[in-house]
Amino acid sequence: MTRVGRWAADHAVLFVAGLVLLYMFLPVSFVVLMSFNDPVSRLSYEFQGFTWDNWRNMCAPAGLCSSLLTSIQIGLAATLGATVLGTLAAFALVRHRFRGRKATSVLIFLPMATPEVVMGSSLLALFAAGGLAGRLGFWSILIAHIMFCLSFVVVTVKARLAGLDSTLEQASMDLYASEWTTFWRVTMPLVFPGIMAAAMLSFSLSFDDFIITNFNHGNTITFPMFVWGAAQRGIPPQVNVVGSLMFLTALLLVLVSTGIGRRKQAA
């Protein structure tokens, strides 16, 4: 092979990877761009002029900010519930031997392998059979969100726990720390990043869920429900502001957390 040919072959994979990343970023860039758009009519999605107005009056479209608040409330409550229940279960699965482990693992794995339509519709079937179809709302969304976040928490925390060096705990016990002290001073600090990751994953799953929520929301409007409703009439540019804000927040969180992780590794 010639030198040029070899160079091209060597870098082809990088070039393709770059194109794929571009594909992944195209819609996000579009969302950020459109958050500064000054549209003439509600139905036009072309960029017509630059303005800060959408960012300044984020809550201008009726119902947008209240739906955002509902989503944040549900997200926080679902994260708390799923993280606590899931972490306890992960400890049980890694640290304790008991009968029915196999069946338990299957029950935890199944929700992740089930399409959301099936989960959402079966919960609705249950609520309807219980005569609750007319009273769905905040509580039913919360129940559903805790349910589908739970498995992801168990898997995430379990992975962290399983990779834990148990000699550290043995050392602690050898130095006369009680089980309780060892747990809080050694085990917990080591598992905590896993729990944090699980909580962040839960929040983003809950905050972004549309399909399961759509089946069980009653009259409660979460942010994705608001966007869905607005999509039928024309999306207000402020929706893109929220999308951009979410993107920036997530990027910041990920960069900060990996930054901290790396500094700890270096230290």
Binding site: M24, L26, F30, V31, F247, L251, V254
Partner: peptide
Amino acid sequence: VLVIAPFFTSFLVRTLAWNSI
């Protein structure tokens, strides 16, 4: 990070962006 980051923007908002693109 670049692979994961776009996916923190709402699924619906991104799909609607495709609609406009």
